[in-house]
Design a binder for these strands. Structure first.
Lengths: 333, 333
DNA sequence: CTGTTAGCGCTTTCAA
DNA sequence: TTGAAAGCGCTAACAG
C-alpha cells in the first residue's frame, strides 16, 4: 500500500502538501495540485483511516444503535437506516452498527474513539441510555422524544400530530365514533415514545372534537386483531372508522372486518399510520399518514454533523406528518 | 483521556508491559499484571482504536454489505444482521454497515483499512462484486451461492434441499400434484441465487418422485397471489398442496384460498419456506422449513474470522434445512 | 504558496 | 519477566 510519503516523493512535494491537497484546508497552486493528484492516481493511494484518526481525532464513523427486537416495525427501521447511511456518506462518514442488547456498546465505541458521534433509535420515555449519553464528550442524537432529553438533540416523527391529522380527516368525512388499533402492548409497556404519543394524540383529538374513541393495543396477528375488533365493534356506539398504527395488521385487516360483514370503505373507513410502502402494498392502497422514515434518518445525521462541525445549539425537531387520501376512507354512510 | 503511557507511569512499568498485559501475547508476573490492571481501572483507560489499527494493521471492524432493496425479505435480513453483530462481538469485532448502492464502498473501506474483512449479503449468480472482492487482500465471505465464487468463502441456506424436504413431506402425506409459489419475478430476473435454487430443488424433487408440479413467481400482494392461484388450481390436475417460498404471502393465503372454497389443511396442504417467526405468526402456525437466518449470520462471521486469524482453507458451507409439521399440512383427502 | 517537524497512541523487535 | 525505542501513516503548528 502506498503511503502519503510515497505520493509526496512521486509528486516532488512534501507530505504536508499532499495532506492539504486532500483536505482542502490550505490553498494550493493549480500546478502542484495536479501533480499531487496525478501521483495519487498513479500509485492508487488511499489514506489510512487509523493514522488519520490518530492524528486528527476524527474517525469519520458514526455509531447507530438499532433495535433488533421483534416487536418493532422492521420495514420502518430499514428505511430509517437507509436514510442514515446514505446521508452519512454525503458527509463522508461511515456507519457502525450497534445493537440494543450490546450493553456497554456506547462506552466501548466512544471511549476507544471508534465513532465521532452516536444516533440512538427507539428511545423510551425514561431511557436509561440518556444519562449515559449526556455525560459523553461525543455528540449524540436521540430518535424519539423522551421525558427529559438532558440536553441532547432529538428528532422524531410527530406521532401526536399524525393521530390528530387522521382524526380530523375522518371527522371531516362525518365519522363520530373512531377506533384506534395501536402498537403491541409490549411497546406501550416499555414506553416506546412513539406508541405513547400516537395514542395520546388520538385521545386528545377525539376529545377535542367530541368524538367517541375506543383504543386497543394489538399484536400483529390475526387472533389479536380479531379480539381488538370485537371489542371496538361491540361497543354501544360502534366505530365507523379506524386509525391503525401497526403496519403488520394491514394485510390482515380486510379479512378480519369481513367477519363482521364490514367492507372498506363502504361500511367502515380506515386510516393507516404507516410507512409509505406498507400503505401502498395492497390491491386497494390505504389512506395513510405516512411515516417518512428515510427523512428522519437524514435529519438525525444532519443534526449530529452540525454538532460535530460547528457550535450550533442543541436542537429538537419534530417531523410534520401529512395525510394522503386513497381508497380506504369515505364519507360515513 | 488517559493514554497507555499514563497507565504505565501510574503502574510504574513500561508501556510495552501495559500493551502485553492487554494483549496477552507475553507472560506477565501476577504482581505487575495486578498493578497494571489497577491503574487501568483507576484512570478509566481505553485503548485508542486508531492508534491500535495504525500499529497493528487491524481495525477490529468487519464490513457488512446489506441490501436495503424492497423486494427482499426484510425480517430475514434483520435476523441475519443480528446473528452477524452478536457473533462479531464474540470475536471482539464491530460491524460497519455498507449498502448495496454504495458503489465503491468495497474499495473505500478496504483500501483505507477501515475494515479487516467483508461479509456480502444477497449475492447473485454472476455478481459483479465477486471479481472485485477476489482481488482484495482482505478476506470476504459471500452469503449466497454464485455460479463461480472465484476462490471466496460462501455460506448459505440450502434452498434446494429445503424444497426437496417440503416435497418429500407432502408426498409422504399422499399428495401427487404440488404447486410452488415463489419469490417475485424481480428476484428471479436478477438471479438472486436463493430464488433460483429453491425453484430448481422443487422441480427436481417433483420430477424424481413422478409428481405433477406447477410453479409461479409472485409479488407479495393479494392481486398477484390470486393470479398465481388461479393458474395453479385450474390446471388439468389441480394441486392438492402448495409450497410457498415468499413470507409476505402467508398472511394473505387463507383468504385467497377461500375464494376457491379451499380450506387449509382439509382441502389443501401448505408448507412454507420462511423464517421461524413468520411461520409462527398466525392463528394456525404454518408447517414450515425454516430459514435459520441468525445461524447463517453466525457462520458467516466465523468464516471471515477463520480466514483472518489462521490459514484455514476457503470453505463453502450449506446450512441444512429441517421441517417442522404444524397445522397446515395433512394427508390428502 | 510550500516545507519541516513534532507529535497522535499503540505494537513489537531487540536487548537485557 | 521486563524495558527501550523504532516505527505505523497522518495532521497541523510553525517557519519561511
Amino acid at each position: 500500500m502506498a503511503t502519503m510519503n510515497d505520493v509526496a516523493k512521486a509528486a516532488g512535494v512534501s507530505t504536508s502538501t499532499v495532506s492539504y491537497v486532500l483536505s482542502g484546508k490550505r490553498t494550493i497552486s493549480e500546478e502542484t495540485r495536479e501533480q499531487v493528484l496525478a501521483a495519487i492516481r498513479k500509485l492508487d493511494y488511499s489514506p489510512h483511516s487509523g493514522a488519520r484518526s490518530l492524528a486528527s481525532s476524527r474517525s469519520n464513523v458514526l455509531g447507530l444503535m438499532v433495535p433488533l427486537r421483534a416487536d418493532v416495525n422492521v420495514s420502518v427501521i430499514m428505511q430509517f437506516v437507509a436514510g442514515v447511511v446514505t446521508t452519512a456518506r454525503d458527509y463522508n462518514q461511515d456507519v457502525l452498527l450497534l445493537t440494543q442488547d450490546d450493553a456497554d456498546g456506547i462506552h466501548r465505541v466512544t471511549s476507544q474513539s471508534i465513532v465521532d458521534g452516536l444516533l440512538m433509535m427507539d428511545i423510551e420515555a425514561r431511557d436509561p441510555r440518556i444519562p449515559q449519553l449526556a455525560k459523553l464528550r461525543k455528540p449524540a442524537v436521540l430518535i424519539g422524544f423522551p421525558d427529559d432529553p438532558l440536553g441532547l438533540s432529538c428528532v422524531d416523527f410527530d406521532f401526536a400530530a399524525a393521530s390528530r391529522t387522521a382524526v380530523r380527516h375522518l371527522t371531516e368525512l362525518g365519522h363520530r365514533s373512531i377506533g384506534f388499533i395501536g402498537s403491541p402492548q409490549a411497546s406501550l409497556e416499555r414506553h416506546a415514545t412513539y406508541a405513547d404519543r400516537a395514542r395520546k394524540g388520538f385521545e386528545d383529538a377525539c376529545h377535542a372534537a367530541g368524538i367517541t374513541a375506543a383504543l386497543r393495543a394489538c399484536e400483529p396477528t390475526s387472533a389479536a386483531l380479531a379480539v381488538a375488533l370485537n371489542a371496538i365493534l361491540s361497543a354501544p356506539e360502534p366505530a365507523t372508522a379506524l386509525v391503525v398504527h401497526n403496519e403488520g395488521l394491514l394485510p390482515l385487516l380486510r379479512e378480519a372486518l369481513a367477519v363482521h360483514s364490514l367492507q372498506i370503505p363502504k361500511d367502515i373507513s380506515v386510516v393507516a399510520i404507516a410507512p409509505e410502502d406498507a400503505a401502498m402494498a395492497a390491491a386497494h392502497p390505504w389512506t395513510a399518514v405516512s411515516i417518512p422514515a428515510h427523512d428522519i434518518g437524514r435529519a438525525a445525521v444532519e443534526m449530529v454533523m452540525d454538532r460535530l462541525n460547528s457550535d450550533k445549539p442543541v436542537e429538537i425537531r419534530l417531523i410534520t406528518p401529512s395525510l394522503v387520501q386513497r381508497e380506504t376512507s369515505a364519507a360515513r354512510s
